[in-house]
């Protein structure tokens, strides 16, 4: 389209791409460009970026290793702590058991003493109670005799002391 006005070579070439008079120029400058890019890339850019990437990779690997080590250490510390805790706990349990046994022993001894005392006191009390009971029974018999004698006298009879006593004794026994 309108090549006559625009084609540089003045030829009837509608597509500048097919204007072969410009090809040597383009090819020359393309080769120069490619060589420059290749040299810049292979001498400067690519080794530099490759080195940076490798650096970063090794840094990351090192950091990961350090983190792993720290983690191992933390795990070990936790394990030691747990061990110590378990030891302390068994120790404490042992002490508690010992104390409990000692207390039990003391307690048993005290209980035995107390039991013996209580038994002694009980026996003594029993004896006292028996004395008191006997006394009471004698008093009851005497009172009964007096009351029976008085009753007989009040009823107009003549109280025979021995008969009253025998009757009261028989009554008390019955």
């Amino acid at each position: 389209m309108a090549t006559e006005a625009h084609g540089e070579a003045g030829k009837a070439v509608g597509m500048p791409q097919l204007d072969f008079s410009t090809w040597p120029n383009q090819i020359f400058w393309l080769l120069v460009t490619l060589v420059v890019i290749y040299l810049v890339l292979s001498k400067i850019a690519l080794p530099r970026i490759g080195a940076v990437l490798a650096d970063r990779k090794s840094t990351i690997t090192n950091d990961l290793a350090a983190a792993e080590e720290l983690k191992q250490r933390a795990v070990a510390a936790e394990k030691a702590y747990n061990d110590a805790l378990a030891t302390a706990r068994t120790e404490a349990a042992k002490i508690v058991a010992q104390a409990k046994a000692e207390i039990q022993k003391d307690l048993d001894a005290a209980t035995a003493t107390a039991d013996a005392e209580i038994a002694a006191k009980a026996a003594e009390s029993e004896k006292t109670i028996a004395v008191i009971r006997d006394g009471a029974a004698a008093a009851v018999a005497e009172v009964a005799r007096d009351v029976a004698g008085e009753l007989v006298a009040a009823l107009g009879g003549k109280a025979d002391a021995s008969a009253v006593t025998a009757a009261v004794t028989a009554r008390l026994k019955g």
Binding site: E8, A9, S21, T22, P24, N25, Q26, I27, F28, W29, L30, V32, T33, V36, I37, V40
Partner: peptide, 18 residues
């Protein structure tokens, strides 16, 4: 005329690409 060594707009834009 465009000789093989003439700096053209091809040169310019390839240089900008570089």
């Amino acid at each position: 005329p465009i000789e093989w060594y003439t700096p053209t707009n091809v040169t310019l834009w390839m240089g900008i690409a570089v």
